[in-house]
Design a protein around this nucleic acid. Structure first.
Lengths: 246, 246
DNA sequence: ACTGCGAGCGAACGCCGTTCGTGACGAACA
DNA sequence: TGTTCGTCACGAACGGCGTTCGCTCGCAGT
């Protein structure tokens, strides 16, 4: 929302300090999130950025959880969705989920934590869910399967982003990160082959591939599984693919 | 040396206090986790349960993160794995993952948060991973696919448990929880059909099914997807199903 | 009997989320 | 114009957190 220019007088027309508002709080929060990560995002830190005390925020925001929800949806607003093209549904779906994940793991590191803690019900999150459902329907997925798949895929994107953002913040130095992977790989190799026969045998495979490759493969597995799981399988038709009853 | 009757006696005056140890700390932590949830699990709370100050814990535990990792692995120790029976691999896998999820969402509510924050590398976590890999291999999954699937399935179990434990702690009253679901369902129904056509059309499906049913269906989707995704698909054979090169 | 060591722990530091009471000030009203 | 009133801003405080510092003192080794 743009600043209101129609009101000639404001509480404090001093240009020195932009009036406190929900938008100002969200903007400040996003900036902190982007530059300092989610751990730095405290009420006090946001208040400090707005040159005020933490108590002042509570006029516009009920509590920390609400601030987080607002910030998440504001961040989600930067994800653009394109109209569904049925011929390219799978490609579009992969692209959408990739951008969601990138947003949560790179652009606003740590914001995935917020998405895990609450079901996102903000306007922008709904816009993304709408697009995802539309793409799934274009792919010929049944109503019930699409509804559940949207949940599953969102969860996947969020969990992946959460893990990746954790590594990114924990090992800011890429070399350090590489060394950590090597350390774990070595750990696998020294395991007792008696106790962990499969693991030792598969050790080379356990640490293979970079994050993005693994992400795309997981997405493929989910989508293929969706298409391969019968709409009325061994579970009740009502729960999985039947008609709504309410 | 109780010289002053009004002054509290020193802790040292007390005789047989169970000596502080890593095990005692873990036991106390598990008990708090079980009865009060992960949010109550602070260094101070554990110290209090052991009738001491928080500083004393740091002799045995490096920091909060290490305590969490220790607790997670101790909890994982209560999950029993049975020998792989190739004929029943799928059933056994579902059972194993179900028990993992139940552990994290019900028995030790909130412990899933710890599993998301670090790759579990404790002895008991490895035992479970070993079993999972063995079951996947018994199901005819390729080496590379099994290695990745173990990751994917663990992530799924953890994320599901995390969500469920959050609801459980947030809405301790089951009625309240039910009402919350209804509230969200109503929210979906009142969405603008212009902006969210697919969502409004699918609204009845979006809130259907209880947690456990959804959990099992997701697991089915993942396993089916695993079997349906070609070992050498559109991605390089080296990354997905090829032989190790190291 | 003495000594060195290290476990145990009291106290403190600097964070955190949240609440309370108060003061300032524009708007409405007399 | 003067007065009241409601609301926003905010200083201060409360109770909690993780972690560190340095002291005390029981005990093992001599």
């Amino acid at each position: 929302m743009a600043s209101d220019a129609s009101a000639p007088r404001s509480r404090r027309d001093r240009p020195a300090k932009p009036a406190l508002s929900r938008e100002a709080i969200i903007d400040a929060g996003l900036e902190i999130l982007r530059s300092e990560g989610v751990d730095a995002l405290s009420m006090r830190r946001v208040a400090q950025a707005l040159d005020t005390g933490p108590a002042s925020l509570y006029v516009y925001v009920a509590n920390r959880a609400e601030l987080h929800a607002l910030l998440f949806d504001a961040a989600a607003g930067t994800v653009e969705v394109e109209p569904t093209d049925p011929a390219r549904w799978r490609e579009q779906l992969l692209d959408l989920v990739t951008r969601m994940t990138r947003l949560m793991s790179e652009e606003y590191p740590g914001i995935a934590k917020m998405a895990m803690a609450t079901i996102p019900t903000g306007e922008n999150a709904l816009r993304i869910t709408e697009s995802m459902l539309s793409l799934l329907k274009a792919g010929g997925v049944s109503d019930q399967a699409a509804a559940y798949a949207a949940d599953l895929i969102s969860m996947y994107a969020t969990a992946i982003a959460y893990e990746q953002s954790l590594y990114a913040t924990q090992y800011a130095d890429p070399d350090h990160q590489e060394r950590e992977v090597q350390r774990i790989a070595a750990h696998f190799r020294y395991l007792s082959a008696d106790k962990y026969p499969t693991m030792t045998a598969l050790a080379p495979f356990l640490t293979r591939g970079d994050g993005h490759e693994r992400f795309l493969l997981g997405l493929d597995v989910i989508i293929n599984g969706l298409l391969a799981t019968p709409t009325e399988g061994r579970l009740s038709a009502q729960a999985w693919g039947g008609a709504p009853d309410a």
